[in-house]
């Protein structure tokens, strides 16, 4: 965000640089069960973002002093790979930005995971951004929700994330990296669709109260598409199994050859 010199024209003839309308999401593809070793996992391609999420646990919380005798704790690590951006080699290990995103992501999932079912345990949630193109924390929450669902850990809802930005005075849905770099405001939001409530809400830039309310409504509306992608990804592996068994000849004794 911010811009400075050489700010490109982000909106030309009422369209965005990649041809999208103001309220149009990038293409989203989600695949479940992509990391075999993990208890639950998922992979998302959201525009040019490519993010892998995996869940381990519930298992005994270690070290002992971090465990909670009443409920499970979540350990969340969001990280961008050093080769994930168009810039040079990134720093490995957690930086301040990643630490903050890990924290707000953990808090988002603490709201929907039934932690009291697993006292004294930990649930490890890893979000690895392999390629980043703006909106990675929102896409990370979206894919992590699917990974958690595949793990079978009980949740009260399937949250999703999306970001809304402001270009000039125009609100736009789902900023990509160029838009994010030169936008006038950026609002990453995560919503719990069943509660209709906001689980992650950050903002940076300049916006009026009315614009923020409009941004929240845009995020809610985008949820119709994003939630469906999440559910479809969860359903697909089971449908594939069902199709496979339909194709196999039934194991009923075959009629004797005459």
């Amino acid at each position: 965000m911010g811009g400075g010199a050489n700010k490109p024209e982000l909106i030309v003839n009422g369209k965005r640089l990649d041809g999208r309308a103001f309220d149009e999401l990038r293409e989203i593809k989600i695949e479940a069960n992509t990391v075999k070793n993990a208890v639950g996992s998922a992979y998302i391609e959201w525009g040019n973002n490519k993010i892998l999420a995996a869940v381990y646990g519930p298992k005994e919380a270690l070290p002992k002093h971090v465990s909670d005798p009443e409920k499970a704790i979540i350990k969340c690590r969001y990280q961008m790979a050093p080769f994930s951006s168009l810039e040079g080699h990134g720093r490995t290990g957690p930086n301040r930005r990643a630490t903050e995103i890990s924290k707000v992501t953990r808090e988002t999932f603490e709201n929907v995971i039934q932690l009291d079912k697993f006292p004294g345990s930990e649930i490890d949630l890893y979000i690895e951004v392999l390629q980043g193109d703006g909106g990675t924390r929102a896409a990370g929450i979206t894919v992590a929700a699917v990974a958690l669902a595949t793990s079978g850990i009980p949740m009260t809802d399937l949250p999703y994330g999306v970001s809304v930005g402001k270009i000039g005075e125009q609100l736009v849905l789902d900023l990509n990296m160029i838009e994010d770099n030169y936008s006038d405001a950026d609002v990453p939001i995560a919503i719990s669709p069943r509660q209709g409530k906001v689980l992650l809400f950050q903002m940076d830039g300049s916006m009026s109260r009315e614009q923020i309310m409009e941004a929240l409504q845009m995020a809610r509306k985008a949820g119709e598409v994003i939630s469906k992608k999440q559910r479809d990804a969860l359903r697909l592996p089971y449908e594939q199994i069902a199709d496979k068994y339909k194709a196999v000849p039934s194991n009923q004794p075959q009629p004797a050859q005459a």
Partner: peptide, 20 residues
């Protein structure tokens, strides 16, 4: 004149009306 930064923290949820 404007809101410049927002941060939600902790694991609860806010409704749109509460945010307004």
């Amino acid at each position: 004149h404007s809101i410049r930064a927002v941060q939600k923290g902790l694991n609860g949820a806010f409704s749109f009306d509460e945010i307004d």
